[in-house]
């Protein structure tokens, strides 16, 4: 525990050190006045743009839209991946099909599918969700399947001994036993879906209330509000750091570190 806390503190200190020094260099360059503020706005300008968007609630709302899209798509994608992985585990015949599907679809960037998705499901939230689900489902399926195949027969025997059905064994034994693989899959899925949602929002933004962070940044860009653009990117960075450095580490600490490595 103590060790883990110290490790997390040291991560925070290292990160803060680098970020602060970078900001310092940034401000030094700005103060030479050799670079146009349309390329490198001063930190004050970025800060005040950030602050004003924060107090009007804009930034929170835009970030909230993107995050909830990723959460919703992540949930749907994970459930679908679970269905695929379970189906592949239960049936050799289906496993072949799912293998092929994964091999074909996994390397496709979600953004490459955008023109097709627009044709099939229009330009609303559904299309963004389709792209997020696509980013989540394949890495999750792959990880769940390797997780299932790594579960030791003994744990399955223990579950059978308690009279669990196939479904019961799936829920009570297979899924928790392959949790470390699931967590690794979730990490990849998060990274892919977060990128996908931001890019999708930049490619087809919706001007109404439903725009996300990508849209926020794009809008700042087309109206040449460089400081606002950097403020939006700063929020992207902060969300990424919080989720990677803290949420996933915390999740790992609460589970895998306690249970002891991969099972």
């Amino acid at each position: 525990m103590g060790l883990d806390r110290r490790r997390r503190m040291s991560i925070i200190i290292t990160r803060a050190g680098w970020i602060l020094s970078t900001l310092l260099v940034w401000q030094l360059i700005v103060s030479t006045r050799r670079v146009s503020p349309l390329i490198l706005p001063s930190l004050q300008a970025i800060g005040s743009s950030f602050w004003s968007s924060l107090i009007t609630g804009d930034l929170v709302r835009y970030a909230g839209v993107s995050i909830s899209l990723v959460l919703a798509g992540g949930l749907i994608g994970t459930l679908l991946a679970a269905v695929l992985a379970v189906a592949a585990y239960q049936s050799k015949f289906l496993a072949g099909g799912i293998d092929t599907l994964t091999a074909v679809a996994h390397p496709l960037p979600g953004i490459a599918l955008l023109p097709l998705v627009i044709l099939w499901s229009g330009t609303g939230i559904t299309s963004v969700l389709v792209i997020i689900v696509h980013s989540v489902i394949w890495p999750m399926t792959i990880n769940l399947r390797s997780g299932f195949s790594s579960v030791h027969q003994r744990y399955i025997d223990v579950g059978r001994n308690y009279g669990f059905s196939r479904l019961g064994i799936m829920l009570h034994i297979m899924i928790p036993a392959s949790w470390s693989y699931m967590l690794a899959g979730l990490r990849i899925a998060w990274a892919r879906s977060w990128r996908a949602v931001i890019s999708a929002e930049m490619i087809f933004g919706v001007m109404g209330a439903s725009g996300g962070l990508g849209w926020y940044i794009f809008q700042r860009r087309v109206f040449m509000d460089t400081a606002g653009m950097y403020a939006g990117i700063a929020v992207l960075i902060m969300i990424g750091l919080v989720i990677e450095d803290h949420l996933f580490r915390l999740l790992e600490h609460k589970t895998i570190s306690r249970w002891g490595g991969r099972q």
Partner: peptide
Amino acid sequence: LDTRIITLSHPDGVSALLSGSI
């Protein structure tokens, strides 16, 4: 009409119009 606007490049806009999604 601003709340009805979505941004699409011209070619994406054509296919979206033809497919009925806009």
